[in-house]
Each structure stands twice: as C-alpha cells, then as structure tokens.
Amino acid sequence: MTGKTHVMGGIAATVVTVHFTSYEPGLIIAAGAVGSIIPDICHSGSKIGRKFPVISKMVNRLFGHRTFTHSLLFLVLVGYVLTLFTNDQSIIIGILIGMASHLLLDAVTKNGIKLLYPANLTFRFPFTMKTGGSLEKVVLLLLTIVTIYYGKDLIL
C-alpha cells in the first residue's frame, strides 16, 4: 500500500475507535496517523524512511522489508517502549492501532507480511491487490468514507 492509504487507514481506525470509546480524539487520531507509517521504517523510499534514512537503511539491512517491522513482535515491542515514555493511553493506543492498520493493509498485498516473525511464514489474505493500483484507490476512498461517517460527530 502507498503511504497515503496507510495514513488514511490509521486515521479511519482511530476515528472508529473514538466513536466507541472515551479516548482523547485529537491525540488518538494524530497518534494513529503517526503509527500507520512506523512499520515502513524498513523501506528507505517510504514516508518515514525518507525522514530517517540512516535508521531506515540500518533496519532494512538487519531485517529486510516487511519482516520484523511488520510483525506482532514489533507491535508488542513498540507498545512496551511507549509505556516507558508516556502513560497517556490515547497516544499509546493510537500508535498501536495505526500500526495494526498498516499490517492489515499490507496483508492485502501480493507480497504479504511476516506477521509471526521470526518465523518465516508469509501472511496474506486470499484476495490481494497491487500497491498503487486501482483497487487500492477504492480502498483509500472507502477508508475516507469511513473516516467521514464516524468522524462527523467530532466536528460538530
């Protein structure tokens, strides 16, 4: 998936979460957007990879693309590290939801993800799509509609 789809996925997932919980809307949604790009630190051409090129290249050399940073292990590790720096649940949950939405979206691509890393098992849905293709544009539109639908009460 492209960066804009990941960001919209993180925003949509956190807006829906806000609709059903009492988390601070501004914090959790912003954290969801940030969290949605974190797994791609392993790709130097990604939004986050271009911002932190040295870290991105190092992570890619150590693990490759869509392995460790696209796993449940990484999700748990980031969650733990976040608790060392903040006890604000809106931030922690938002980042983790954004990251989880990233994993879900990448699992819909042909290459899938190594969800159970270090096990060398590729997880992908039975239906897949090409990154940047027409189906991804439909997914982006649907995520935008979900965001507007569940977020309309936040504006009023």
Rank of each mutant, 00 (worst) to 15 (best):
I38S: 05
I41W: 04
L135N: 10
M99R: 03
H65T: 08
S90V: 10
F85G: 13
A119W: 13
S134R: 13
A100R: 01
K4S: 14
F52P: 04
F63W: 15
K57R: 15
V76S: 13
G133W: 08
K130H: 13
P126A: 04
M58Q: 11
G45K: 15
T122F: 06
G98C: 06
T21Y: 01
I97H: 06
G132P: 07
F63K: 06
I38L: 13
S56K: 01
S36M: 01
H6E: 09
V7K: 02
L77C: 14
V18S: 01
Y117T: 10
Y149G: 01
V7E: 02
I155E: 03
G79T: 07
T69I: 03
M99F: 10
L154M: 12
L96N: 02
T83H: 15
I38F: 11
R61P: 00
V76P: 07
L143D: 04
G49L: 01
K110A: 14
K114M: 14
G49N: 02
Y117Q: 06
A100I: 04
I145V: 15
R124Y: 14
G94N: 05
L84N: 14
L156S: 14
T144K: 02
G3C: 06
H65N: 14
V16M: 08
S134K: 15
L156F: 15
G64V: 09
Y117V: 08
I37T: 12
L73Q: 09
L96Y: 05
I48V: 15
I55W: 10
V16P: 00
P126V: 09
T83M: 14
S56W: 06
E24K: 08
L141V: 12
A31D: 10
V54H: 08
N60S: 13
N87T: 12
R66F: 08
P118K: 11
S90N: 07
I92L: 06
G45L: 08
S90K: 07
T128C: 10
L116K: 02
F20P: 00
R66E: 11
Y150H: 05
T144Y: 10
S56Y: 12
I148R: 01
R50P: 02
I37E: 07
F52N: 05
A31Q: 04
Y23C: 01
A12G: 02
I95S: 05
K57Y: 08
T69L: 11
H43L: 07
F20Y: 13
L72W: 10
P25V: 05
V81I: 15
K4Q: 13
L154E: 08
Y150C: 00
G79C: 11
N120V: 12
M1H: 03
L27V: 06
C42D: 15
M8D: 00
G94L: 12
L84Y: 12
L121A: 13
I113E: 05
K137V: 07
T144L: 12
P118N: 10
T86P: 04
K4A: 07
L156A: 13
M8R: 03
T69M: 11
M58D: 12
R61E: 12
S101D: 04
H43T: 09
V146C: 04
T109A: 09
F125N: 02
L96W: 05
M8Y: 02
C42I: 01
S101K: 00
G79N: 07
G9I: 03
K152T: 08
G10V: 01
T131R: 05
K152R: 14
I155A: 09
P118L: 11
D40V: 12
T144E: 05
